[in-house]
Amino acid sequence: MPFQAASPRRRRTLIRAATVAALLLSGSACGADTEASTEPAPLQQTSAAIACDGSGQLLGAGSTAQANAIDIWKNAFSAACPAITVNYGGGGSGAGVQQFTQGKVAFAGSDSALKPEEVEATKAVCTGGQGIDLPMVAGLVSIVFNVEGVDRLVLDGPTVAKIFDSRITKWNDPAIAALNPGVKLPDAEIQALHRSDDSGTTANLTAYLAATSGGAWPYPPSKTWAGKGGQSANGSAGVAAQVKQVDNSIGYVELSFAQTNNLKSAAIATGAPQPVDATAANAANTFAKAQVAGTGSDLALNLDYATKEDGAYPIVLVTYEIVCDKGNKPATLPALKSFLTYTISDEAQQAIGQKGYVPLPAEITSKVKAVIPQLS
């Protein structure tokens, strides 16, 4: 391009001129340069309400729970902003946070908020700042099952805990039968599947079990699986695939993976008048009561896993995008802010709401929208 040999100041001037021309001709504008500027310029709005600024690769990694959402967002964002390439690798929340603290990615997806020691570790890569949690993808953990002849299954906290800790081993166990009167449960061994990788999905499931099992789950909430026995698989996609293939199996995945694989999801007896089905609408009832527990720019949420409200599904999760509040790399900061501005938009939240996720309530998205422009 002719302006590449020009000075940085001249190059920025030419780019601004080209942007203005594009706006006049087509009504859309996607910036294509990450050159740092001493004069902050407003992001250019496209006809799809996507703001483009910066160029090059934007790398992220972590949560597999949000993988389907990221795919949807990448497609829309890339179409509007071809100068920016978003590459997101899964590997689980634990791996994502590790890559972030090693400075390998601009953002990490994690289904659990940063712990104090993890925040401390981020300071090595966030010069003058630290990592913060920005809630971006809301969803629910579906207890998926593959039991011949059983189309609807009701479970509760103590029963789920004992199944995944190998203390309930048969499908016709009295505890399961009591929750499912009239259902013909087979005299078959339960094949329980859990995550092999450090997972925020596991952290949210075990937080639910710790809050609702009455001590039947004897382990603290953790990304690392602690239950006894069972089989393991990597990522949400791996667990879903195994449940689909293995007779008399049970596992836990996000609702989007349950839907993609046509898996049945258990209803949860919470103490509400009726067992609560694993639907996005029911999870939204739980998120509506979520409170921000973080301080400053950190927007970690407090989720009520022990809710007994009618129609409130209790096993919910939120995926946070972990970013630096200060000290982001100048080369990727414009693209990072552009992408996050889009993903928290009403348009983007509604787009993933059609694929098994839960659009975040306005009370939360408004707070995230206020933080993103302040990233530096």
Rank of each mutant, 00 (worst) to 15 (best):
N146R: 09
R167W: 00
K170I: 01
N172R: 02
D173V: 03
E148I: 03
I168S: 01
N146P: 04
A161N: 06
R167G: 13
T159E: 04
E148P: 06
R152G: 14
R152P: 05
D156L: 07
A175E: 13
L153P: 11
R152L: 11
L153H: 06
I163G: 06
A175M: 05
A178S: 11
A178P: 04
A138C: 12
L140Y: 12
S166A: 14
G157N: 12
I163S: 06
L153V: 04
T169F: 00
E148L: 02
D151F: 00
F164D: 08
D173L: 06
T169N: 10
R167I: 02
V154H: 03
A161W: 00
A178R: 03
V137M: 14
P158A: 08
R167Q: 14
G139T: 02
V160C: 10
L140R: 09
T159Q: 04
T159I: 03
I163Y: 00
W171R: 10
L155D: 07
F164Y: 07
K170P: 01
N172F: 05
V141H: 07
G157H: 12
V147L: 14
M136F: 15
I163P: 05
G157S: 15
P174T: 03
A177W: 00
A138T: 11
T159P: 02
S166Y: 00
P174M: 09
L155E: 05
W171G: 13
S142N: 05
P174C: 09
D165N: 15
S166D: 14
V137S: 13
A161L: 09
A138K: 07
V137R: 10
E148M: 04
R167K: 15
D156I: 05
R167L: 09
P135C: 05
A175C: 03
P135D: 08
N146S: 09
W171S: 05
I163Q: 06
V147Q: 14
S142E: 12
I143A: 14
F164V: 01
V147P: 12
V144N: 14
P135Y: 04
L155P: 05
W171E: 09
D165M: 09
N146M: 07
K162W: 02
L153Y: 08
V160D: 11
R152C: 08
A175I: 01
T169M: 11
T169R: 02
N172W: 03
L155K: 04
L153K: 08
G149W: 12
R167S: 14
A177Y: 00
F145N: 08
A177G: 00
W171N: 13
P135M: 10
A161R: 04
T159L: 01
K162Y: 04
G149N: 13
A175L: 05
V147R: 15
D151T: 11
L155R: 08
V150Q: 13
P158M: 07
P135K: 02
E148C: 00
N146V: 07
V137L: 11
V137Q: 13
K170M: 03
D156M: 04
V160Q: 07
A177V: 00
N172L: 10
S142I: 04
N146A: 05
D165K: 00
L153M: 14
I176H: 13
R167A: 09
A161S: 14
